[in-house]
């Protein structure tokens, strides 16, 4: 007889989820892109550029070379290998969006569950504060904060998180309200447990899947927004390799040496779409109706 897992994860349900994910080609494409992206980021972060074919910052004489066997993506106007630069950008373009989403999710979960479970004045206050943040167009708010703090990659995180967290607060609160009305929460109260126990042990585990789906979908969007910030000049600063930055800096080469600006732009697009596809697939996989079709 197989050993039953000791983890707090339902392996049967997890396998069902994987089966559904595997069945959709678009989801698998998304998964592959997402995994490749994250894996590359981790590898590069650990080895810090040493495995790249060329040093991304080394200026050479071989300027504006079209893609060839020597330089797969060609070189830019400073003779830097475009492929190496694009790869070097991965850790940054992964770290920032992940940090932003992680902060947003944590803050959102915390505030949303408390608001949803406790209700009353606490809920009102939290939700109105969230509303205030949501009232600003996201990009405008981010720009304002970065302009105040000064452009840098770290400040980009500080600028983008306030834009994202209220959405998760709303989501978490809504889900909390529906879990709160379940009778197992009442049974917990009848056993003498307080708000903290219930939120940690009942509410959060039950809303995490939904939040995860949204976070995955969001990642793609944050990657784009971060690139836009850099595009405007308020995110990563030169000479850092970052896709948005690379796209804007080489914009003037669009007609003469299109590979220089277009390849980083394509990278943004591919990764964003990849996460989007994965998020969509996850959402379908968690839908009880699709699950019953696969059992």
């Amino acid at each position: 007889m197989r050993m039953r897992s000791r983890l707090p994860i339902d392996t049967k349900e997890a396998r069902l989820t994987l089966r559904i994910l595997r069945s959709s080609t678009t989801t698998m494409i998304g998964l592959v892109i997402a995994v490749a992206f994250v894996a590359t980021a981790i590898v590069l972060w650990l080895t810090s550029d040493s495995i790249l074919p060329y040093n991304p910052s080394s200026i050479t004489a071989a300027i504006v070379q079209p893609p060839s066997i020597v330089h797969i993506f060609g070189t830019d106007e400073l003779g830097r290998d475009v492929f190496s630069r694009v790869m070097a950008a991965v850790p940054i373009d992964a770290e920032i969006p992940f940090c932003v989403v992680a902060i947003a999710v944590s803050m959102g979960l915390l505030t949303g569950t408390i608001a949803g479970y406790l209700g009353g004045l606490v809920e009102e206050v939290i939700m109105r504060v969230a509303d205030i943040f949501l009232a600003f167009p996201g990009l405008v708010l981010a720009l304002a904060i970065v302009a105040a703090l000064g452009p840098s990659t770290n400040n980009a995180i500080l600028a983008l998180s306030p834009v994202w967290w209220p959405g998760y607060t709303r989501l978490a609160r809504g889900e909390t309200l529906s879990v709160k009305s379940q009778q197992y929460v009442e049974a917990s109260r009848a056993a003498g447990h307080g708000a903290r126990y219930i939120i940690v042990h009942h509410i959060i585990p039950n809303i995490v899947p939904v939040i995860l789906v949204y976070a995955t979908l969001d990642l793609g969007v944050v990657i784009i927004i971060f690139s836009v910030l850099s595009f405007i000049g308020l995110g990563a600063q030169p000479p850092t390799s970052e896709w948005g930055l690379m796209t804007v800096q080489e914009e003037h080469f669009l007609s003469s040496a299109p590979w220089i600006p277009l390849i980083p732009a394509a990278a943004i697009l591919i990764v964003a779409v990849g996460f989007s596809l994965l998020g969509d697939g996850l959402r379908d996989a968690l839908d009880p109706k699709t699950r019953s079709l696969f059992e």
């Binding site: 197992y184 009442e186 009848a190 056993a191 447990h193 126990y197 585990p205």
Partner: peptide, 26 residues
């Protein structure tokens, strides 16, 4: 208390052991 609906009175994400031990943990 024992509730009417057996489905919604048990947390679907908890194992039986944790469900039954929960009152003890208070």
């Amino acid at each position: 208390i024992v509730f009417q609906n057996p489905v919604s009175s048990l947390d679907p994400r908890m194992r039986v052991k944790d469900i039954v031990t929960e009152p003890l943990r208070a």
